[in-house]
Design a protein around this nucleic acid. Structure first.
Lengths: 152, 152
DNA sequence: TTGAATCGGGACTAAAATGGTACTGATTTG
DNA sequence: CAAATCAGTACCATTTTAGTCCCGATTCAA
């Protein structure tokens, strides 16, 4: 697929919803209502986000959730990792020894380079930026240099 | 998952295998043997790669496959697209109108920016580079700029 | 103190995607 | 014509994903 799972997509929506009410503690029901997502789904998302300490939870009557940090200090990468675990585009990036041809295989190295680019991109987008509606001119500029070997 | 499917991973291995024999026409059986992948799997991969005109096929006795273009002119992005379709990290990037909150939702825009970074990264890696075994110093340098709005 | 609201954690189900297999047909060579 | 090889389709088993439900723990307030 090369896709982020739908739940992760939802999680970004939930996070922006919470970020839009910086001073309030929002209940799961309120968030579900605003985002038009099913309540149990939202509940599941918030559990994961809370576990990753991206949101703070409050129990009891009038309980709910709030951002654990300012929106500007939460990156898209953290939201993705909260739901999908470490970012990695191939399986063999992590484990070794399952492929017989590791020696002749330059593929792993290439994938790892792509990984790091993606990782940087996700880390560069903050929740605060996601809050703002489409800004046509706003973009991430990327310079890719592959021609020469460098040590840093 | 945020992963490329296993088949796509295999496809890169198959492509590098073919690229390693620039002058030969390799049969599916030969490729399966060299890559240690199952023959039907390799067959399936080659069909997709052939459909995307990344490899040329020859029927009949002594038939097989060959790169359709020099390895330096085939990018990782093309291989990924051959197997997974257009590169896009979320579903709503493509279709509109399925989400009620499109107006207030700045999330889509942010995802699209991340998409373009990933796309550039995949496009910057050529099959020729993947052929070479790990080169420790070789990396993709990425500059990310999100602070200011720009028109280009 | 009691009850209602709310989070926390886990188990469970249904559906979809994925990976892999099998079979049949078409094409080329000799 | 026969063998080798690609082409296309259909199929199945497994895994993953999305979504739901239940029950216990916690807090607030009447």
């Amino acid at each position: 697929m090369l896709r982020v799972s739908r739940l992760t997509d939802y999680a970004t929506v939930v996070m922006t919803c919470i970020a839009a009410h910086p001073t309030d503690v929002l209940s799961t029901a309120q968030i579900a209502d605003e985002t038009h997502l099913e309540l149990p789904t939202v509940s599941k998302l918030l559990k994961a986000l809370s576990h990753a300490t991206l949101v703070e939870s409050f129990r009891g009557v009038n309980g709910g959730y709030r951002l654990a940090r300012p929106a500007s200090e939460i990156s898209l990468a953290e939201i993705v990792e909260a739901l999908e675990g470490p970012i990695g585009m191939t399986e063999c990036s992590a484990a070794d020894g399952q492929c017989d041809r590791e020696s002749q295989c330059g593929v792993r190295g290439s994938w790892q380079r792509v990984n790091s680019v993606l990782d940087n991109a996700l880390r560069a987008v903050s929740l605060a930026e996601m809050l703002k509606p489409a800004q046509p001119g706003r973009k991430i500029a990327v310079t890719v240099r592959t021609g020469e070997a460098t040590t840093e």
